[in-house]
Design a protein around this nucleic acid. Structure first.
Lengths: 190, 190, 190, 190
DNA sequence: TATGAATGAGCGTTCATTCAT
DNA sequence: AATGAATGAACGCTCATTCAT
C-alpha cells in the first residue's frame, strides 16, 4: 500500500472536531476542523464520508472513551453504593481530564445530526451500570422509580455537578461529594 | 428599528422562531422563520438587528414566560415544601402546555449564540424562588448545598422529569410525583 | 411587490448561459454564467432552482426560438418542396444569426443533463413540419423511409451544412443550396 | 511517463475510459476510469500526462480503430458505388460491434477538450476514402459538391443511420440499406 | 513502476443581510 | 414600515493531480 490510512490522522481529525465543536458548537466548519487537525480539507473526507458521518463517529468515540473511563476498575462485587460512587467519580474524573470532549459530547447529544442508531450504539457497553440499577430495583432499593428514570437522574445530576466543578475548580471536591449525596438521596431508600 | 410599529408582528416572529428552532434546531433559517410568521424576510430585520439579536430576545422572552407561569399563584406564605411543589408543578404545566417553547428554550440554553448577559438577565425575576432557597439554607434545611447548586439541581431534575412526561404522557402523573420526591430527597434534610 | 423578478434578468442569465456553454461546453460554471450576465452568483438561483434546471430551461428556450424562426412565414399551402426549402432556409438563417445559441443547442442536445421530458417538450411545436413529412409519406413521395428517419436526415444534413456555412461564410449561399439539394435527393423520389 | 512499462495497462485504461465516457459523458472522472481499468488512480498519470492527454489519445485510438475496420478488405478496384457500400457497411459493423467506443467517439468529437491537432491527425488515414471521393469529383460524378462536404454528409448520414439501427435493432437491415440509398442519392448524379 | 492517501482549487448551493421599490 | 429580489461570503464536498511509500 502506498501510504496507509493512518489511525493517527483519523484521531487528529476526531480530536480537532471535539475541540472545535466544544468551542464553536453548531458553527464548527469542516474547514476549521481540518485546519486544527493540520490536514487538508479534502483529507477529512478520505476518513469520513461527510460531516454527519464525522459527527456520528465522534459521538461514538466520545461515548466509548467515557465508558472505558467509567468501567475501568469498576468494582463488580462491591456494594451498590460503592459501585455508584465509583461510577460517579470516574465520570467526573473523565470530564475534568477531558473538558473539550465533555462539552462536545454534551452538544452532540443534543444535535439533530446524531442519529438514533448512533445513540443506541453509544449506550451499549454501559451495561454493567444498567445492571447495577436493575439489581437495585429488584431488591426494592430504588424507591419506586423506573430504572431508566434513575439512570437519567444520575446523568443529569452528574452533569450539573460537573458544571459546578468546572466553574469552581477550587471547590471541586465539595461539589463532587455533595452531588453524589444528592443523587444517592434522590434515588435510594424504600 | 428601535420602535417597531406592530407588537403583534414582533410576537409573530418570536413565536415562529420558537417553533422553527424547536423543530429544526441549529438549521433554522431566518427565511423559514419569516415565512412561518407570515412576514417578509426583510421585515424580520426591522424588528431584530440580526439573527443573534432575535435568538437572544427569544431566549429572554421564553425565560420570562416560564417565570410568569411559575410565579403566578406562588404561595409566598406556604411551607417550603409547598412552595417547591408549586414551582415544580408550574414548571411542568408550562412545559406541557408549551412543548415547542420548552424545546426551543432547551436548545437556546445550550447555544453558543446566547450571550452571558442574556443568561444573567434571564435568571432575574426568579428571585422569589431563590429567596425561598436562601431562607431554607439559612434554616439549615438544605443539607450543606450552596444555594445556586440547589437551584441547578432543581432545574436539571425538572428537565429530566419533563423528558419522561413528554415521552410517556400516560404516566405523566407518576413521573411528576416521583421527580419531585427525588428532588426533595436530594436537597432537603439536615 | 418590492422588486419584481425581472424577465430581463432571467433573459440575461439564459443568454449568458448560451454564450458560455457555446464557448466552454461542459466546463461552463454557474459563477462564469452569473458574471457574464452581470448578476451576483446567488441571483442565478433565484431564477433557476439549480444548474440542471437552468440547462433544461435554456434548452427549451433555444428550441422555442428556433421553432419560431422556422415557422414564421411558413407557407402552409405551398408545394412540399417549397415548404422544405422554407424550413431549410429558416433554420440556416437562424443559425447564422445566432451562432452561440446554435452551438449551445447542439451541445445541450448531447448533454446527459437535459431530461427526456425536456426533449419531448422541445419537439412539440415542430408539428407543422412533421405534418408535411407525414403527408409526403402518405403520397408515396418519400421513397420508403419512415417519417422520423427523414426528419433525422433533414436535421443532420442541415447541421452539416451549417458547419460548412459557419466555416466558409464566403460560400454560404453555395452550401445552402448544395445542402438542400443533397437533402431533397436523399429523401424524395418514389 | 514517455515509455510506460506495460502496453496492456495502457490499453486497459483507454478501454475503461471509452466505457466510462460512453456511459457518463462529461462527468466521467479519472478515479472512475482507473477503477474500471483495475489500476491505481495514480497509475493513470504515468501513462497519460493529464486527463486532456488521455482524452486526446483515446480520440485518436478510436479513430484509428474505426479506420482499420473501414479499410480492412477495402475493394480498391471496385466501382465507386461498391467502394462506398463497403465503407458504409464497415462503419455500421464497427459501430454495432463497439457501441461504447462509438458513443465515446461521438462525445469526444463534440468535446471542447479534443484539440484541433488531434482532429486533424484523426482524419489522416482515411485517405483511401477521400481519394475515392476526389476521383469521383474529377469524373463529375458528385454533382457539384466539394469533396469535404461529401465526406461530412456521409459521416452525418451514417451517424443518423446508426442511431436508428441502435434504436430499432430488429430493423437494422432496412435502415442500413435505406441510409445508404439516401446517401448515394444525396451525392451521386451529374 | 505502482500505489492510493494527501492535497487544495474550485464547484454548486445556501443564507444572513441589504436595499430598491 | 413592508416587501422580497439581490448580494456575495462561506459552506460542504469533489476531483485532477502530486508524492511518500
Amino acid at each position: 500500500m502506498a501510504r496507509p490510512k493512518s489511525e493517527h490522522k483519523r484521531n487528529a481529525i476526531l480530536s480537532a472536531a471535539a475541540g472545535v465543536i466544544a468551542e464553536q458548537g453548531g458553527s464548527a466548519t469542516t474547514a476549521r476542523i481540518a485546519k486544527e487537525a493540520r490536514v487538508a480539507e479534502g483529507t477529512l473526507f478520505t476518513y469520513f464520508a461527510n460531516k454527519d458521518d464525522l459527527l456520528n463517529q465522534l459521538y461514538l468515540e466520545l461515548k466509548a472513551g467515557l465508558r472505558n473511563a467509567m468501567l475501568h476498575g469498576y468494582p463488580l462485587d462491591a456494594s451498590l453504593r460503592e459501585r455508584a460512587w465509583h461510577a460517579w467519580n470516574a465520570y467526573l474524573d473523565w470530564a475534568i481530564a477531558h473538558p473539550a470532549e465533555r462539552r462536545a459530547l454534551a452538544r452532540l447529544t443534543l444535535s439533530e445530526r446524531v442519529t438514533e442508531a448512533s445513540r443506541k450504539a453509544g449506550n451499549d457497553g454501559f451495561a454493567p451500570i444498567s445492571a447495577a440499577l436493575q439489581e437495585a430495583a429488584a431488591l426494592g432499593k430504588l424507591r419506586d422509580h423506573p430504572v431508566p428514570f434513575v439512570g437519567a437522574i444520575m446523568n443529569s445530576l452528574a452533569e450539573t455537578t460537573m458544571d459546578f466543578v468546572a466553574h469552581y475548580p477550587a471547590e471541586a471536591g465539595r461539589y463532587r461529594t455533595a452531588g453524589f449525596e444528592a443523587f444517592w438521596s434522590a434515588i435510594a431508600g424504600g
